[in-house]
Amino acid sequence: MSVLADLFSLAAVGAGVFFFIAGTAGLLRFPDSLTRLHALSKADNLGLGLVVLGLIPRAENPLAALKLVVVWALVLLSGASTAQLIGRVLRRGRE
């Protein structure tokens, strides 16, 4: 059981790291701000989400697991709204 859990953690965390790397690459390589924004918002939300998912089996108690989820939800929330706001700022700047 614990081996299975460990494997799950490894897979999820590994995938999370991959998304972080992908997001950063996008931030650096994409040609303009709007596409960079797209890369960022997909990547860091998924990256952190997968890391959290991987760490949940290792949480000491249900409350700690809940906190992990809340952390992710907060980042997701602020990421979603800020992406929209940054998008608007960028669009206005372009007009």
Partner: peptide, 10 residues
């Protein structure tokens, strides 16, 4: 709206 919504939840 987006900022108000964020604040209302956050």
């Amino acid at each position: 709206g987006a900022m108000v919504l964020l604040a209302r939840i956050l």
